[in-house]
Amino acid sequence: MKKGLLPLLMIALFYSDSVFMVFFPENAFNGIYVPVPRFFLIGLLFMSVFFDRNTAIKYGFLFGFLFDMFYTGLLGAYMFFLPLIVYITSKLTKWLHSTLVIFFIIVLFDIALLEMIIYGLNVLVQRSEASFEQFVFMRLWPTLALNAIFYILFAIPLRNAFQKLKNIFG
């Protein structure tokens, strides 16, 4: 019964991105800055480090697939890149000892990587005309700032949650 808590937590994180968008006034800062919530990705990275990497890859694949279908309509993008980023992170944490402070930098690196990949993809399929400078100024910095705040607030609860789940799963 308690094993159901893991999918429940991931579903909550999945919807938290869009619930954040409900509360966040979209033309804050006159629409100059576009911070993108990546709370699900942060949760997924915690899962890969403090729970189990292969489960995190599976979750990344499944929820990335849902994200593509439900929100963006561009199939395959998140489905492919979320597991890839989980994999890269697991390699990085192998030779960087994972305290929460070092993990903070890894998470920000991953978010920047995902943002850049998605930006590149959008330019490639001509869904966006923003230049790279515009992208960095409008999206990348605000996104990193927003998710850094989320990390600082939720890093310890998330770590504890995944460690507890690991005990439950044995």
């Binding site: 869009s18 409900v22 919530p37 929100y71 963006t72 561009l74 998605i118 869904r127």
Partner: peptide, 9 residues
């Protein structure tokens, strides 16, 4: 009920 959270499209 939802707005695309990655805000690209």
């Amino acid at each position: 009920i939802a707005r695309n959270p990655d805000r690209w499209y």
